[in-house]
Amino acid sequence: MVSEASGQQDHKTNTKLFLKVFAALCFLTAISFVIANSPLMKSQGLAWAVMMLVSCAKAFLVISFFMHLKWERTWKYVLTIPASLMSLLLVVALIPDVGRRAENYSDQRWLHATEPSEVKADLSREDASATGDEPVPVDSSESDSH
């Protein structure tokens, strides 16, 4: 709406602004990329959180500058906030049943569940039973809900 009243001057500043936003977006993408290839990935939760924050920052930049929401009136909140909250709600509500399903697996279910796989080099056939390394995780909670 601002640009309606603005002249050539504003146009130039706008273009400059967009290029600045562009640079910021590229920088943020680079940050995500660097984090993913850095030792920070060892503590995955933290790295994921930082990457999601970076994504949110990028989304904020795109929405407010490229989609012009910075210059719109209050209706922007009416349209964007409910949708964002609803989508968050959906994901949060899916977590207990689907996102944590592995915690409720029964012993029977574990027989078919995927699990991290690695060759146990120390597991030759003779001393297999001697090692404590369990290929089949046994759920201690004895949950049979599945």
């Binding site: 609803m86 989508s87 959906l90 994901v91 899916l94 977590i95 689907v98 996102g99 944590r100 399903r101 592995a102 697996y105 569940a113 995927t114 699990e115 991290p116 796989s117 995780p137």
Partner: peptide, 18 residues
């Protein structure tokens, strides 16, 4: 949200490290 939400719960719901 439906698609990405399904991905998130399916992905983080797999047994640790799998």
């Amino acid at each position: 949200a439906g698609l990405i939400g399904s991905y998130i719960v399916l992905r983080f719901g797999v047994p640790e490290g799998a």
